[in-house]
């Protein structure tokens, strides 16, 4: 299958020049329906990588191709029609209503002087329905819980009608129920043919949703491949510096999971 998004030899430093001290020579690709999970210790540049791929950060070197087109030659709005980005930060200085936030995802489709039409509001409504937050539509965002915020931001990215969605640790700070709810949404979006790139701190989540996993460490992707081949006891020790047992869980689960030991 041809790749939806292709990242080739991507390097980045905040100074914009070599040495590329944040990460260098990162390559991977995601096919339609693929879920690419990025693991790795804190501070290894996972968020920075995701921001580069979403065109939030500029000044990277290498190539990012969306559907074969080089995104550095595309207008920001055209990139945003193809790539939706769900940030980790959830705050707003103003109590925007959830539906007003979700409809912001229509921005790349709108002319500079335009504001959302009835059709845009319908698309936003459908996005809220897809992620199951229609009941929150009229809530000010300042009253949302962490899980509700995350779902609202996913709905906003969905309103962009992108081919690829990028999520930066979408399950962090959420309770178990909300974590699973988010993973369910991720999986169902992939089921519609969307390509997903997400960072996570929970290897078990990669076992649940990922089609491919990479470990980001020491300025690059140190391991990359199918979840079973990447999330191994030795790779986990290497990445996180702790002892982890990776065991197959039977009894109706039939999936591998990580069990750290103290």
């Amino acid at each position: 299958m041809t790749a939806l998004i292709e990242i080739h030899n991507l390097s980045f430093s905040y100074t914009g020049a070599a040495p590329h001290d944040v990460f260098s020579q990162v390559s991977f690709s995601v096919a339609p329906g693929g879920v690419f999970c990025l693991l790795g210790p804190n501070g290894t540049g996972k968020s920075t990588l995701l921001k580069c791929v979403s065109n939030v950060l500029q000044g990277w070197h290498g190539a990012i191709r969306l559907d074969g087109r080089d995104i550095s030659r595309m207008k920001p709005a055209d990139v945003a029609m193809g790539i939706g980005y769900v940030p980790q930060n959830q705050n707003s200085a103003f109590p925007f209503l959830v539906r007003d936030i979700v409809v912001m995802g229509r921005a790349p489709h709108l002319a500079v002087f335009a504001s959302p039409s009835t059709r845009d509001r319908e698309i936003a409504r459908a996005a809220m329905e897809t992620v199951g937050i229609l009941s929150l539509a009229d809530r000010p965002c300042t009253t949302l819980s962490g899980g509700e915020w995350q779902l609202a931001l996913i709905a906003r990215a969905l309103s962009q009608e992108p081919q690829v969605m990028i999520l930066d640790e979408p399950t962090s700070h959420l309770d178990l129920g909300n974590q699973v709810r988010i993973l369910r949404v991720v999986k169902s979006l992939a089921g519609t043919g969307m390509g997903i790139i997400m960072a996570t701190h929970v290897p078990d989540h990669a076992f649940i949703v990922a089609t491919e996993v990479a470990i980001m460490n020491r300025g690059g992707l140190s391991r990359k491949g199918a979840p079973e081949t990447v999330i191994t006891e030795s790779n986990m020790r290497d990445a996180y510096g702790i002892d982890v047992k990776v065991l197959h869980v039977a009894g109706g689960v039939e999936r591998k999971a990580c069990f750290p030991s103290l």
Binding site: K51, S54, N55, V56, K75, P76, A77, D78, V79, A80, M81, G84, Y85, P87, N89, S92, A93, F94, F96, D100, I101, M104, G105, A107, P108, L110, V112, F113, A114, S115, P116, Q160
Partner: peptide, 22 residues
Amino acid sequence: LIRWRINLLAMGEEDARALGVD
């Protein structure tokens, strides 16, 4: 004329850029 776009900036520069705003 640009009033709706100010909403996008109000969500933060990174969010606005991810939404395709210059």
